[in-house]
Design a protein around this nucleic acid. Structure first.
Length: 412
RNA sequence: GCCAGGGUAGCCUAGGAGCGAGGCGGCAGACUGCAGAUCUGCUCUACAUGAGUGCGACUCUCAUCCCUGGCUCCA
């Protein structure tokens, strides 16, 4: 069986291969812990979780690293506004984030390195880029990546580094029109968090933290790097430039980007104010598994137009699942139907869909249909002893791939 | 402007050259103390427009119209 995955870098589906016996090196961009994450954010994390589960179901071991951004403008601003220490803000929302992950039954990564714990590594990378001539330093002591020294810049996002980039990069972070921030010098500490490092007192740029954490925890070349679609540019584009300029090696083999979840016709986002948190959804009485299932009912490269009718549908599917699982456990009278063909057909159809660029949408449909059919034959009491056992195993297999075990109770 | 993705019965979606679309909703029935869930049956029988290539297109090609999203913060 061949697993193919769409690679943003090449804009096409490619077979996912790996030298025998090696772990899959998997890096996903984690949250900035300044607030509750919303259900749009969690779509990405759930898809990434299912990707990991499918790789594992295929016999791979996956070494997964996800960063925690606990130092950046947003966290610093927010802590300052609330007049609380930065750490107490980020600790709170980091805890909340992990609770939500558990609630959604998202498997834990191998490690969740915090930016604040890895300043030295990041500073070292910046210093290295400077030595190699890929960075420029201004009079104040801030460092910027010089994209003129990286000819491949723009390849991932398909943007050419000419007029477009120039137009895009006008913020103050981009000292010269084409460059982006690596390390921001900060002198005083009045309410602002600054770190001591070999570069002096300052704060790391956003892109360099992922480039640094990914390469230092997983090595110069990772197999899969994933994030939300909106990270393609500039975040991932910049990461590639930093990492490849620094290591001289290819940074990531596969880039996997997850589409957005829309609501009221717009991308769900904090700045638009049109978001729901996981907690709000649960408070309305929904099973977290319903949200998971809702995510998986749409292919990860398509937008989901979120609405509560769809969530109701997904909730219903989860009920049917529970119903069938319970009924299977209570079967007392057996028939002669081994159900062999139906089980085999479902398993191969499900696998085939998943192998084709993680087709959870088709797999989900097949799963529902399978459950309905099983439910029907259960009523007729036709199933044999073996059938009941095999169906149970098959359902558990699908539950495991989709991660539909109950994470948290519908507590608020 | 650039890039991407769409237009499928009341709504939401899947499809792929020929074969009964699926779910929701609606209607009826079974089950049930009621309700929900579940089960059965019924309802509805669609693919933006124009042209082209096919024996044959909703499905391929080329146009056209319309819609949506992204593009220096963002999963």
């Amino acid at each position: 069986m061949v697993f193919v995955l769409f690679n943003t870098l090449t804009q096409r589906k490619e077979e996912f291969t790996l030298p025998a016996g090696r772990d899959v090196l998997y890096y996903t961009c984690g949250p900035t812990v300044h607030d509750y994450a919303h259900i749009g954010n969690f779509r990405t994390f759930v898809v990434q979780d299912v990707l990991k589960r499918w790789l594992e179901a295929g016999g791979h071991r996956v070494k997964h690293i996800m960063n925690i951004t606990d130092v950046d403008e947003k966290t610093i601003e927010r802590a300052a506004r609330k007049k609380i220490p930065l750490a107490s803000l980020t600790e709170k929302y980091e805890k909340v984030f992990f609770e939500d992950l558990d609630c959604l039954n998202i498997k834990r990564a191998e490690s969740y390195p915090r930016v604040s714990d890895n300043i030295d590594k990041i500073a070292e990378m910046v210093a290295g880029l400077y030595e190699k001539g890929h960075a420029i330093r201004d009079k104040a002591g801030s460092y910027y990546f010089d994209i003129n020294t990286f000819p491949d810049f723009g390849r991932l996002s398909g943007k050419t580094p000419h007029r477009k980039i120039r137009a895009l990069m006008q913020r103050e972070d981009y000292r010269a029109p084409k460059n982006f921030l690596l390390w921001k010098r900060c002198e005083s500490d009045h309410g602002i968090k600054c770190f001591e490092s070999q570069l002096g007192r300052g704060l790391p740029g956003w892109h360099i933290e992922c480039a640094s954490l990914a390469t230092s925890f997983l090595g110069p070349t990772i197999d899969i790097h994933s994030g939300g679609l909106d990270l393609t540019f500039p975040h991932h584009e910049n990461e590639i430039a930093e990492a490849e300029a620094y290591t001289g090696r290819r940074f990531a083999r596969f880039w996997v980007h997850v589409e957005h979840l829309d609501v009221f016709g717009r991308k769900m986002s904090k700045s638009l104010g049109n978001f729901f948190t996981l907690r709000q959804i649960i408070k309305r009485g929904y099973d977290p598994r319903a949200i998971r299932f809702l995510y998986l009912q749409t292919h990860y490269r398509s937008k989901i137009a979120f609405d509560f009718n769809k969530l109701d549908d997904a909730q219903r599917a989860v009920f049917i699942l529970d119903e069938v699982v319970n009924s299977l456990a209570e079967v007392e009278k057996y028939g002669a139907n081994d159900y062999t063909d139906e089980i085999a057909k479902f398993k191969s159809g499900f696998s085939e869909s998943m192998d084709d660029d993680l087709g959870t949408d088709r797999a989900a449909t097949l799963f529902i249909v399978f459950l309905r059919d099983v439910n029907r034959v259960l009523v007729d009491k036709q199933l044999s002893n073996t059938a009941v056992k095999n169906i149970g195993d098959t359902i558990n297999w699908a539950i495991d791939v989709f991660g539909l075990l109950e994470g948290c109770e519908s507590q608020q």
